[in-house]
Simulated assay, not measured.
Amino acid sequence: MARIKDVAAHAGVSVATVSRVLNDNPSVTEETRNRVYAAMTALNYRPNAVARSLRTEATRTLGLIIGDILNPFFTELARAVEDEARLAGYTVIIGNADERADEQDHYVRTLLERRVDGLLICPTAEVTSLIEEVARAGRPLVFLDRTLPGIEVPSVRVESAAAIGELIGHLKALGHRRIAFISGPATLSTGRERTEAFRAAMAAHGLAVPPEYLEAGDFREGSGRAGAARLLDLPEPPEVIFTGDNLMTLGALGEIRARGLRIPRDVALASFDDVPWFVHVDPAITAIAQPTAELGRAAVRMILNRVEGRPAESAALPAQLVVRTSCGETPYGGGPAAARGAGAGDPGQGDERSRS
């Protein structure tokens, strides 16, 4: 396949001159331009997407930087972004920041060098100078799922307070009073928002939150397990462990199982962020479901508005409580007392789902 230097040699010009022709640079004479085009035709040379973008100022590509590709939330989010972008005629290039600011900045630089038309970023906790620079420059940029203080760019995120309030009301109605929370990191907007919503909901329902009932996690499995272990070792352990995301739920579940405890008879479990396998756990896990696919689709619509020069306003999509059986519910009604009379594997602890 012919390369740009082959075209330059065939036309008897420099590579820089060929590049100027591809850029429609007015400094190139008509005679030279014709020679370059003739060489391109003779060699069947086709400019790559980056070269074409230098003329059209568009690559029909979007960059997406996610927090952790191993987290099912981000996997589903990326799929939705890809699907929506493809419908609009765009290709998505994905980078996994692994929750590290240096990795995030590496992908930002790489994607800008590839001349993506817009950037969708699930930002890490740190406000880096590069992100500030990109935002100040007015490049098409949208924050997805998370926000950064002091950075004024459009964002699409999930509003979690109402669903968390609904969960706490549901747990109180079942008779639970000692409810602990394993949060995400306070350095992330989602970690702060969920912790604040939990505290507010507990206060609204007249329930105390002892300091030892708040564990700080990092949205990964290991911190969920470690947080659950500390809570279960308390002199008065909680009746319910509420975890701030699906991976920490997995860790907490592992710790509960390792101790031989039964859910919900010995301790109830609830999760922020629903995943498909929660319905296959016995008992099925009560969770707050995020509108992940719509989050991704809305983000693509927002970034395309920016790319095409239209206004783009931030949006918050509501989460929804999905009631299952891990907090003491049974298909036959009754509160924790009824549920605690039946083991996790007993008949009647199936996969019945309801919305509350």
Rank of each mutant, 00 (worst) to 15 (best):
A229I: 08
R230A: 13
D233T: 06
P235Q: 09
P238L: 08
E239P: 08
E239R: 11
V240Q: 04
V240R: 06
I241E: 12
T243D: 10
G244C: 10
G244K: 06
D245R: 01
D245M: 00
L247I: 10
L247Y: 09
L247A: 10
M248E: 11
M248N: 10
M248F: 08
T249S: 12
L250V: 14
G251V: 02
G251N: 01
G251S: 13
A252E: 14
A252L: 06
A252D: 09
A252T: 12
A252F: 03
L253S: 06
G254V: 01
G254P: 09
E255C: 05
E255S: 01
I256P: 11
I256V: 15
R259I: 08
R259L: 02
R259H: 08
R259M: 04
G260T: 09
G260Q: 10
L261P: 00
R262Y: 01
R262W: 07
R262T: 14
I263N: 12
I263F: 10
P264D: 11
P264V: 03
P264T: 11
R265E: 14
R265H: 05
D266G: 09
D266Q: 13
V267L: 06
A268I: 02
A268R: 10
A270D: 03
A270I: 07
A270C: 06
A270W: 00
A270K: 08
A270L: 09
S271N: 09
S271Q: 03
S271V: 12
F272P: 05
F272I: 09
F272N: 13
D273S: 05
D273N: 13
D274P: 01
D274Y: 01
V275D: 02
P276L: 08
W277F: 13
V279C: 07
H280V: 04
V281I: 12
D282L: 08
D282W: 12
P283G: 12
T286Q: 10
T286R: 07
T286M: 10
A287Q: 08
A289F: 00
T292S: 05
T292C: 02
T292V: 14
T292G: 05
A293V: 11
E294A: 14
